[in-house]
């Protein structure tokens, strides 16, 4: 097995609002290994973005705060670092690209200025010429043609796909160990989406940069990732290699998600959707967080919170159904009724 690069242990990120404390991310554990592409899937509000911003130390504060746990990057705990120390890590060891390429680049500076800035922050001794050369090199690497001319352009002169390529270039320019991509293709149209995903896969292979890909799109996950984490209401509900999750999903939520993916082969009148909606942050109670929407929910699900069960090797799921005994009892009762 490959070396663990980034390890998240018991991370808790809470938002302190006027309506009370909202645990957006509640006690999650996972790790990103060298050179892998790990996907995090979940609906909006499941805590995916908060997780990624927590790693970057960019949780808007106030109101947000990391209230517990550790984020270990090469055995260094990022949670305890000051903002000044984090500045040295952001962009250099861990880089991030965002959902909205249209607004993520500063509209008043040229692409070149912004790329060179990213280079010079972490390589202050470089001359402008060296930075320029590196900027050209990285632009070519992400497949941007006419790099020299593009550097003189402002973001509004570029298309969405090109801007996202620029964002990727900017994130990779200092050879980070981990690249966090927060819904990088959501705002792009489908053909561009495929290109950007292909680019990320290529770069992952060529540069051996580990990628943490956050998305709500299972199709994206299937195409790109090696391992997947499914999040629901601030918790990890399932974690498995890509094959496992599609062939043998254990958690009812994951099963629901997979069922919701439209399939061209079967024409149905209605597309499947999981009944109900994600619980409002702050309204979360004891028990399994998915219980209210779960078709297999038992009494026990409302009373206690299920732990993460080891379903198979590298496959974990937070569902009581994985307790053999429970399953048998439950099946019996269903049969009886």
């Amino acid at each position: 097995m490959r070396k663990k690069l980034l390890e998240i242990k018991g991370l808790k990120t809470t938002f302190f609002t006027d309506d009370g404390q909202i645990p957006a991310v509640d006690d999650i554990d996972f790790s990103v290994h060298e050179g892998e592409i790990l996907g995090i899937v979940g609906e909006s509000g499941s805590g995916k973005s908060v997780t990624s911003l927590s790693i970057m130390g960019l949780i808007p504060s106030p109101p947000g705060k990391i209230t517990g746990g550790e984020i270990l990057l090469d055995d260094q705990n990022l949670v305890t670092l000051s903002d000044k120390q984090m500045q040295k890590i952001r962009g250099k060891d861990v880089a991030m690209i965002f959902q909205e390429p249209m607004t993520s680049l500063n509209p008043l500076f040229t692409i070149g200025d912004q790329l060179k800035e990213a280079i010079l922050i972490h390589n202050p001794k470089w001359s402008k010429k060296e930075a320029f050369a590196r900027a050209i090199e990285i632009m070519k690497l992400v497949g941007l043609p006419r790099a020299e001319e593009l550097l003189k352009d402002y973001p509004h002169q570029l298309s969405g796909g090109m801007r996202q390529r620029v964002m990727i270039a900017m994130a990779l320019v200092c050879d980070p160990k981990v690249l966090i991509a927060d819904e990088p293709t959501t705002a792009l149209d489908v053909t561009i989406q495929a290109q950007i995903l292909q680019l990320m896969k290529d770069l992952n292979k060529r540069l051996n940069t580990a990628v943490l890909l956050i998305t709500h799109d299972l199709g994206v996950v299937a195409e790109t990732c090696e391992r997947v984490i499914v999040m629901y209401a601030g918790q990890i509900v399932e974690e498995a290699p890509i094959q496992e999750i599609f062939v043998n999903p254990k958690h009812p939520y994951t099963q629901g998600l997979i069922k919701s993916v439209p399939d061209m082969r079967y024409k149905k009148d209605n597309l499947y959707s999981i009944p109900g909606s994600v619980p409002k942050p702050g309204s979360i109670q004891e028990g399994c967080r998915f219980a209210a929407r779960c078709e297999f929910a038992m009494e026990r699900c409302v009373q206690e919170t299920p732990p993460l069960y080891e379903a198979a090797e590298q496959h974990k799921s937070r569902c009581f159904l994985l307790e053999k005994q429970e399953v048998e009892q439950h099946v019996e009762s269903v049969v009886e009724s």
Binding site: L58, D83, T103, S104, L105, N106, P107, A171
Partner: peptide
């Protein structure tokens, strides 16, 4: 705005 977050994500000083 997003670009301010991007600038911070690059590791720029506040």
């Amino acid at each position: 705005s997003d670009y301010v977050r991007t600038a911070r994500a690059k590791g720029q000083k506040m």
